[in-house]
Every structure is written in structure tokens, then in C-alpha cells.
């Protein structure tokens, strides 16, 4: 029974991104900044480090696929990038000590990496005309700030939750 809580947590995180968009006024700062919620990615990275990497890769693949189909309509992008980022993170945390502070830096690096890959892809398929400077000023910094805040608020509960799951799953 308790094993079912893991997929449930990931589903909640998956929808939390769009629910955040419901509450967050898009006109804040006069629409000058576009902070993108990446709560699901943060949860996924916690899963890969404090639970199990291969499970995290599978979840990234599945939910990335859902994200592509439901939200963006550009198939394959998140489905490919999310597992890739989980893999890179697991390699990074092997070399670096996984204290919550170092992990904070890694998570921010991952989010920046994902944003840049998605931006690069959009430039490639000509879905955007924004220059790289515009992208950094309008999207990257606000996104990092928003997700850093989220990390500070939810890091300890998330870590505890995944450590408990590790005990439950044995």
C-alpha cells in the first residue's frame, strides 16, 4: 500500500507545475520576466540521488512523454532531456559529496542546463525569435530564482520522503 505513495508523489509534482501557473499571475512584473516552475524536475533529481537512479530515469521518461504530449505538443523533447539530466546528475553526485548545499548547486545547474537545451531546440525548430541575451534575462534568471526558492522550502521534506521510500522498498 505504502509503495503506491511514490507514483502518487510524482503525479502530484507533475501537476504542481501547472497548478503553480494557475496561481501565479502571468502579468507579474508587467510580463517582463518568465519564471518557469520546474518542481517536477527537482523532485525527480531528489529521487535519483536519495532513492534510486534507474527508477528516476524511468519516471523521467514516462512523465517527460506525458509533458510533451499534453503541454507542448513537441514530442520527444522532455522525454529525452529528463532522463539525460537524471543520468548526468547521478554521475555528478558520485564525484561530489551529496550534502544538501552541494546538491542545491547541482540542481540549479541542471535546471539551467534543461532551460538552455529547450531554448536551443526551439531555436533549431524556429519556434522562437528570442536572442540568447533575451533568453538569459527574461527566462533563465527568473527561473533559477523561482526554483531556488522552491528548493529551499521543500528540500528537507523531499529528502526525508525519498529516504523513507528507500526503506519501504528495501
Amino acid at each position: 500500500m505504502k509503495k503506491g505513495l511514490l507514483p502518487l508523489l510524482m503525479i502530484v509534482l507533475f501537476y504542481s507545475d501547472s497548478v503553480f501557473m494557475t496561481f501565479f499571475s502571468e502579468n507579474a512584473f508587467n510580463g517582463a520576466y518568465v519564471p518557469v516552475p520546474r518542481f517536477f524536475l527537482i523532485g525527480l533529481l531528489f529521487m535519483s540521488v536519495f532513492f534510486d537512479r534507474n527508477t528516476a530515469v524511468k519516471y523521467g521518461l514516462l512523465f517527460g512523454f506525458l509533458f510533451d504530449m499534453f503541454y507542448t505538443g513537441l514530442l520527444g523533447a522532455y522525454m529525452f532531456f529528463l532522463p539525460l539530466i537524471v543520468y548526468v546528475t547521478s554521475k555528478l553526485t558520485k564525484w561530489l559529496q551529496s550534502t544538501l548545499f552541494i546538491f542545491f548547486i547541482i540542481v540549479l545547474f541542471d535546471i539551467a542546463l534543461l532551460e538552455m537545451m529547450i531554448y536551443g531546440l526551439n531555436v533549431l525548430v524556429q519556434r522562437t525569435e528570442a536572442s540568447f541575451e533575451q533568453f538569459v534575462m527574461i527566462r533563465l534568471w527568473p527561473t533559477l530564482a523561482l526554483n531556488a526558492l522552491c528548493y529551499i522550502l521543500f528540500a528537507i521534506p523531499l529528502r526525508n520522503a525519498f529516504q523513507k521510500f528507500k526503506i519501504i522498498f528495501g
Partner: peptide, 13 residues
Amino acid sequence: IARNPDRWYELIT
């Protein structure tokens, strides 16, 4: 019911 959270394509559901 949803707005594309990554806000690249200006899509709503």
C-alpha cells in the same frame, strides 16, 4: 484547465 508550464508556445488547454 492548464497553461503550458514552460510557456514557450503560448498554449492553453
